[in-house]
């Protein structure tokens, strides 16, 4: 009996606290927050959204194109290539993405002008390398990171395709290249499709790191708004909501793609 009363009291307290928090948020949203900066910064925000989306899409595309050979050589050999691929995956997966981004941006960013000073020919031919802005370094870092994580996934995928299917393909007289293209690769991708979807969502959630190297993606625009208007929460709240929306859209796209894969169930 005492337990039932205690349980109801706890329930009432928890509900009360939740309602109080909800009321506070509603009050803050309608009476204490400022949103008048949105029209002024809308073009910048849209461009930031575009940067974020292209960073994600291009890095996933190029990263996946790199991941396929990285996974494949770890299964087929030759040994020395497999070793290189395996160490690449270990290094990428064992170090924080932020350190990789900073190494590429500050490291290469300071190296190119030095080479340019030592060797004037470099400056003439590779001026574009010296002038690259943060976006391209971020894209390179994200691409390599995606390749590292997905290379490991693809290795498992290539190993997971049943041997009998590959043997059947070979028995039909397909050349090794044709077996890989028509049977091995499509079967492997289907096996790990849900994993790839999850990893792409993770990749989306690491894109805001680009703002640390002065890329004006969504996060970069947000921090500029925060500096200009001295507002702390409102831009961050908007950013969180935008990222949530992007995450759900991405999940929706992947669910639709997954349903288009024919399976026997």
């Amino acid at each position: 009996m005492a337990w039932v009363i205690a349980k109801n009291i706890i329930k009432a307290v928890v509900l009360g606290a939740l309602l109080a928090i909800a009321a506070l948020i509603v009050y803050w949203f309608f009476f204490a927050s400022r949103w008048d900066w949105i029209p002024k910064y809308l073009p910048l925000l849209l461009r930031g959204l575009w940067y974020t989306i292209t960073l994600l899409a291009l890095s996933c595309l190029f990263g996946f194109l790199l991941a396929v050979p990285i996974g494949l050589v770890q299964v087929t050999g030759p040994g020395w290539l497999a070793l290189i691929a395996k160490s690449f995956c270990t290094v990428i997966r064992g170090t924080p993405l932020l350190i990789q981004v900073w190494l590429l941006y500050y490291g290469f960013g300071s190296l190119f002008p030095q080479i340019g000073m030592a060797w004037p020919g470099f400056k003439e031919h590779f001026m574009w390398l010296i002038r690259l802005d943060g976006y391209w370094y971020a894209l390179l870092a994200f691409t390599l990171s995606y390749a590292g994580y997905e290379g490991e996934v693809m290795r498992g995928a290539f190993l997971g395709v049943p041997r009998g299917e590959l043997e059947a393909a070979r028995a039909f007289g397909m050349s090794p290249a044709k077996v890989a293209r028509r049977v091995w690769f499509p079967r492997a991708v289907r096996l790990v499709f849900p994993t790839l979807a999850g990893e792409t969502v993770l990749q989306l959630k690491s894109t805001p790191l680009a703002f640390t190297i002065a890329v004006m993606d969504l996060m970069g625009v947000t921090s500029k708004i925060r500096q200009d208007t001295y507002l702390t929460f409102e831009p961050l709240m908007l950013l969180a909501v935008l990222y949530m929306g992007l995450t759900f859209i991405l999940i929706l796209i992947f669910n639709r793609l997954e349903r288009s894969i024919p399976t026997r169930r």
């Binding site: 805001p208 996060m219 969180a240």
Partner: peptide, 21 residues
């Protein structure tokens, strides 16, 4: 759901500032 849908960096900034405030 909320924590896993928002990037960690943004959560950390939000919680850091919101928490202190």
């Amino acid at each position: 759901t909320l924590v896993r849908a928002v990037p960690e960096l943004i959560l950390i900034l939000l919680l850091y500032y919101a928490g202190t405030a």
